[in-house]
Write a protein that binds this DNA or RNA. Structure first.
Lengths: 220, 220
DNA sequence: GTTTTAATTTAGATTTGCCTAAAAAAATAT
DNA sequence: ATATTTTTTTAGGCAAATCTAAATTAAAAC
């Protein structure tokens, strides 16, 4: 297994988290990593030569199978350390992430596999996110209807059941499509309408009828 | 507490290990870190501006009090991780060092103090070296006569009891002085003479009479 | 379908940590 | 005391990862 820099690993992880469905854009990634778009372009060229991302100028990027494999290794490290910090060192729920951000870059596979064993092969980290196993298998969060999505839980649109022209026109007007990340800010029981917020945009309202046809997966 | 790069930390740690008595030279440090003398000079200038080392061109370097404090923090991290790896993750004696070299650069003080507590405040790492406490206090190894030094245990000359001209002449001829690092390769019971190896030099033999007057501390 | 705006990429600079080769200083030997 | 050898420093460069500013391409608006 090759070795990657902390910076490369952070990019790969960020792409994995943003990707889900569809492609990731330069600006999205720059925002996620608190860096500049120009830096992202530079790194994408490098990761492309390392065959970790698919990338063509102006067309966004996606992880290759190898890139995804690497992402899952890093996420496995991160979540196992989070579990360790919370369970064994009694860190509080909200402190574990920052420390795990550093620990996740220590790359010994043996270390992580032995840590996993020591911890009793936990399946979820302290935030409830699933931990990939030693082979990189991760429990995929099941698809849920937008109607049933809890408040303020980040999710990604993954399927639309009614694909009529009218429906698609409405969705496109609201800038919602496969891969759109959103969360529900308010639910109105009167008509089942929802106030939702799209990532990096202001809030909008959608009807219960529309929501019933949209399916999402939990984002991470 | 300020934050230092992995590279800076490795230099500080290496100086601490080499220092013991007297000053550290450019070539010694370059050898210890598998780098080039020119790189050492570059880094010494930087660490000087950060007030971690005393350094004047051509005169070698020593840690400042702040530098020593930092060194002990890094050594504390390293040895606690070694203990964790051996004790909890069942790594074997000889595997712990390499992994701890990476883990030691994760700089959260809270992490290390909680790890210390989790491990039950161990006093020695798996190699028997003392672990500095949360305040940077470390057990100083007691002085032992060279006659009593175990085979192959690295040690540093710290005192010479007979300081006659004849004695000093002999020592200077053998290139032994305060701060000289050495280890015993063979002991001859017949006359108590010792075959010793000075760091970075070939082996030489010294008589029992000489060895009785030389005192060393264990090196780390 | 232009034009305007926004996103992305290129070009060129900066910082860190390292390198080689050459110069300078110190140590050693004659 | 001078010459030789060794050590150390300087000078100049390189690669990684970042940045700003300018140019280019794509998307949006009119």
């Amino acid at each position: 297994m090759l070795n990657y820099s902390t910076s490369e690993e952070n990019y790969i992880k960020a792409i994995y988290h943003l990707q889900k469905e569809g492609t990731v854009t330069t600006n999205e990634l720059a925002a996620e990593l608190s860096t500049r778009p120009a830096s992202v372009t530079d790194m994408m060229k490098k990761l492309r030569t390392k065959k970790l991302v698919h990338y063509e100028a102006y067309k966004g990027f996606r992880l290759t199978p190898e890139g995804r494999k690497l992402a899952l290794i890093i996420i496995r490290r991160h979540r196992l350390w989070e579990f360790f910090l919370a369970e064994k060192l009694k860190f509080s729920w909200d402190e574990v992430h920052a420390v795990a951000e550093d620990l996740e870059h220590v790359s010994s596979k043996k270390l992580i596999d032995k840590l996993d064993e020591f911890l009793g092969f936990p399946r979820y980290d302290p935030h409830g996110d699933p931990i990939p196993d030693a082979n990189g298998k991760i429990e995929t969060s099941k698809q849920v209807c937008l109607i049933d999505l809890p408040l303020n839980k980040a999710a990604v649109v993954c399927y639309v059941s009614d694909q009529s022209t009218e429906m698609l026109e409405l969705l496109s007007h609201k800038k919602i499509g496969i891969g759109t990340r959103l969360e529900i800010k308010k639910k109105f029981s009167f008509d089942q309408s929802l106030e939702i917020k799209l990532r990096q945009q202001s809030a909008t309202t959608i009807s219960g009828d529309l929501a019933k046809n949209i399916f999402v997966k939990y984002d991470e």
